[in-house]
């Protein structure tokens, strides 16, 4: 292996099809995990924020899920759900829960009380208050959580190569197991593409936040100024 190049650029062009396939798999896994994670986390977080007592057990449970090393979690799941998309997704979604719930709760807590007081006083119903005032104002913190979750998940997905998926992790695993001169290229490609995807996702999310919350960029203080 001594004389092999660390990275052969032509490999990328030669395998562009495969790369796109893996990209698609990686993106799919990411998007589904985040969307499902949000669908679970949002109602849970809203509930938790209202009923403070439930917070420690919820944080405790989701925290425990988060602490379990992903390979252990995937390994555990595959004994029940096999080497499938679902195994990966259940595991990935579990990792998003702590981050998302924590950030949604923090975001909701950060909404200034006098804004809520004024809104209720004017005649917003509780539901209108949540959807038209609290959630929009919590958006920056929530998006920050989505960003962290997304970047984390993108990295975790590479591990799923060990259960038959992997996205870009597929290249890492293949490279690791191969003795060809392209081993290094493949591993590096897998890792770099994964990082690139994470950076890209982060930028897209930042842009989305700017679009959804234009008020947060203006004025001396951030959105929470009164």
């Amino acid at each position: 292996m001594g004389g092999d190049p660390i990275f052969r650029w032509s490999w990328v062009t030669e395998n562009s099809d495969q790369i796109l396939t893996q990209l698609w798999e990686h993106v799919q896994l990411t998007v589904i995990a985040i969307v499902v994670g949000l669908l679970i986390s949002l109602p849970v977080a809203i509930y938790v924020q209202r009923h403070r007592r439930v917070l420690p057990p919820v944080v405790g449970f989701t925290g425990m899920l988060y602490t379990i090393p992903s390979i252990a979690l995937f390994a555990f799941l595959q004994a029940y759900t096999g080497l499938s998309f679902w195994t990966a997704e259940i595991g990935l979604v579990s990792y998003t829960l702590l981050i998302l719930i924590r950030n949604i709760v923090a975001g909701l807590n950060a909404v200034p009380t006098d804004v809520k007081d004024a809104a209720l006083g004017m005649g917003y119903s509780r539901r209108q208050l949540l959807w038209r005032v609290e959630l929009p104002l919590a958006l920056p913190v929530i998006v920050a959580g989505i960003r962290i979750a997304t970047v984390t998940i993108i990295g975790l997905i590479t591990v799923t190569a060990l259960i038959g998926l992997g996205g870009f992790g597929h290249f890492i695993l293949t490279g690791f197991r191969s003795f060809s001169s392209d081993a290094s290229t493949m591993m590096l490609a897998g890792g770099l593409f994964s990082v690139a995807l994470a950076v890209f996702a982060d930028v897209v999310l930042i842009g989305t936040e700017k679009l959804l919350a234009p008020w947060a960029q203006k004025g001396a203080g951030r959105a929470m100024a009164t």
Binding site: P112, V115, A118, L120, G121, G123, L137, M224, T226
Partner: peptide, 20 residues
């Protein structure tokens, strides 16, 4: 909710909606 729509309400810190 209906009651409050018919009563004007002003507080010290005003509580303007920052996102509007």
């Amino acid at each position: 909710v209906r009651l409050r729509r018919n009563i004007g309400y002003v507080i010290q810190s005003i509580g303007l909606l920052p996102h509007r």
